[in-house]
């Protein structure tokens, strides 16, 4: 459903992505792993066209989206959940969710997974009690949940999740893992950028490993989880 070929990206004069190619299939949860600075977040941002200087071919649902703007990409059904919980802290929970709202999509003629606030509250129960709370007054874990829920309001077909386990309590990381498993059950595809291999192991089918902006390994998540040599070399475990 998502096919990426030869992605390149630059920050100023510095090139950070050196043509990784990868794909995500229907209903798959795929991990994009690597050390800090390996290019994981950059890859997700480049897919969303949030990095001005980039090149390469990105196809989503057999359409070339390489030259589209971020909002057009989002409207095609690619949802993006940023790192560091970028919620709108002046807005309430309900308002945050409203910003993410988009029409229900269809995939192959059938309605794709779609979300209402009520349905989201079953996956993220702690958000149910605080629709009128401002983002600024939520705990980090609650904010993390809201970021994911907000993107789901756009009824995406594929979600790009940027390091959802970073900097949150272990108990929240577990809740996040459960949420991702739920999404998979709903039929959503997920591309997950992650450093925590234990977390990735819980939710992912396949994995790609980046190092210095290049693709160094790819295969089944289960294989990566047992391949200590690769973990040591590429993930500094």
């Amino acid at each position: 459903m998502l096919e990426v070929e030869g992605l390149k990206a630059w920050y100023g004069a510095a090139q950070v992505l050196f043509e990784p190619s990868f794909h995500v299939g229907h209903g798959e949860v795929v991990a994009l792993m690597g050390r800090n600075g390996a290019g994981k977040s950059t890859t997700l941002k480049a897919l969303m066209a949030l990095i001005p200087q980039r090149s390469g071919r990105v196809r989503f649902l057999d359409e070339d989206i390489s030259d589209l703007k971020p909002f057009q990409i989002a409207r095609r059904g690619l949802g993006f959940v940023p790192e560091d919980r970028r919620i709108f802290s002046d807005l309430t929970v309900a308002e945050n969710l409203d910003i993410g709202r988009q029409p229900v999509r269809h995939l192959d003629g059938r309605p794709a997974p779609s979300w209402t606030m009520e349905k989201l509250f079953t996956i993220f129960p702690n958000l149910r009690d605080m629709p009128d709370r401002r983002g600024a007054h939520m705990s980090g874990g609650e904010q993390q949940m809201l970021t994911v829920a907000r993107t789901l309001m756009g009824n995406p077909l594929l979600v790009l999740l940027d390091e959802p386990s970073e900097g949150v309590a272990p108990v929240i990381v577990e809740q996040m893992a459960n949420a991702i498993v739920e999404l998979k059950k709903e039929g959503l595809s997920v591309l997950l950028s992650e450093q925590n291999i234990h977390f990735a192991e819980l939710v992912c089918d396949r994995a790609y490993v980046l190092e210095k902006g290049q693709l160094q390994w790819h295969g089944r998540m289960a294989d990566l989880a047992t391949d200590v040599a690769v973990q040591r070399r590429l993930l500094s475990v």
Binding site: K69, P70, A74, F80
Partner: peptide
């Protein structure tokens, strides 16, 4: 209004508003 909410959201993080499917331009 939704337009007003969009303004307030964009005031905080315009890039994120775009990534959520809002025509930023």
């Amino acid at each position: 209004t939704r337009f007003g909410r969009l303004i307030r959201a964009a005031t905080q993080d315009r890039e994120m508003v775009g990534a959520l499917g809002v025509n930023q331009a």
